[in-house]
Design a protein around this nucleic acid. Structure first.
Lengths: 197, 197
DNA sequence: CCTACCGATCGGTAGG
DNA sequence: CCTACCGATCGGTAGG
């Protein structure tokens, strides 16, 4: 009695999540209908519910997958004792830039639409974000204490860096003039120079 | 035959716009109902339509008032021949910080919800934004040519500055630790230092 | 400014 | 995966 292949289920579900990410990004979570998602996938709206439980489950999957990616990167970075504070900050900035360049749909949905998460997921998401910010702040604070980073408010530095990369949203529509490489270097240089003592 | 006082109409209409700005900011334009706005103002939903024409008119008013404020500040700044390029950039950064600190509801709605503007207003708004960015870029480019600003991609600098101030959204919920003055100085220092040659 | 109400659309379910 | 459909809610109007 073989079960239905889990891969096939996964693949179809993934294509739904991907379509949802693009639509949630473009139109916002609230303004996107399940009929829009269904059309993008090529089925009727009712058929979606064989693969997902609800619209909110789609949002949840997108937001927590992105959050996990950022958290895991920080885990890896923090466990490396040979890297200086400023180098760690630069690595974080580069990672953020690349995430915004390569996974713009998912990252934008996570940034703009996570507020529509339902409890208890909203609280869990916000908590994970707060922890991430705090850990980032601690790296800044350590760098300041060691004289590797200019004396600034660590909290403001984190807000500035994490928000500055949002400009990449607009870059995506005007790719021609500036390459992804130029964008990354220019943004890193601009943000890192302000941190040097 | 005296008409109904225009001031009274203006005042009531203003309170509707203000309530709409707060709700559009919190819940998003699409997820905010006219019944929510009505409740905030203290009337029935149908009564709103004695003061406004439609929900989209409220969004339009918010977005274009903010756009006008930014454009007019740039007009004033550009007409001042005695200020250097770096000083102009600093003045722009300070103006953005203050707008995000003092008019967070309206500025956030303009930033996040303007995509829900209807044509031809959406095109007009995006055009005004593009012109603003281009003028800002020209100030940067001039500063680079004159050696007052480090050689970076002007477009990336503008995106970085205009997006970095979005971090102030999160600052608003944690005001205790950092004052508005500290925020402004730390953000200006962080962003301006990266621009010095 | 209110009550009453409209056509449209929403997320989701039943049943096959 | 589909057709058919549900109750709820939406922006907005009629009429007073």
């Amino acid at each position: 009695m073989p079960r239905i292949s889990p891969q096939k289920h996964g693949t179809r579900r993934d294509s739904i999540t991907q379509a949802a990410a693009r639509l949630f990004r473009d139109r916002g979570f609230a303004a996107t209908g399940m009929r829009d998602v269904a059309q993008e996938v090529g089925v009727e709206a009712a058929s979606l519910y064989n693969h997902i439980r609800s619209k909110s489950e789609l949002l949840r999957e997108i937001c927590f997958r992105v959050a996990k990616t950022f958290t895991e990167h920080l885990d890896k970075l923090e466990s490396d004792p040979y890297t200086g504070s400023l180098e760690k900050v630069e690595a974080i900035i580069r990672f953020h830039v690349r995430m915004w360049v390569e996974q713009i749909d998912e990252v934008l949905v996570t940034t703009n639409e996570s507020r529509f998460l339902e409890e208890p997921f909203l609280s869990a998401f916000l908590q994970e974000r707060r922890v991430y910010v705090r850990r980032f702040e601690e790296i800044i604070g350590k760098g300041i204490a060691q004289g590797q980073i200019r004396s600034l408010e660590p909290y403001v530095v984190v807000l500035t860096v994490m928000s500055a990369v949002r400009g990449i949203e607009f870059w995506h529509r005007t790719k021609k003039d500036v390459s992804a490489q130029q964008l990354e270097e220019s943004m890193v240089l601009n943000l890192i120079s302000g941190l040097k003592p």
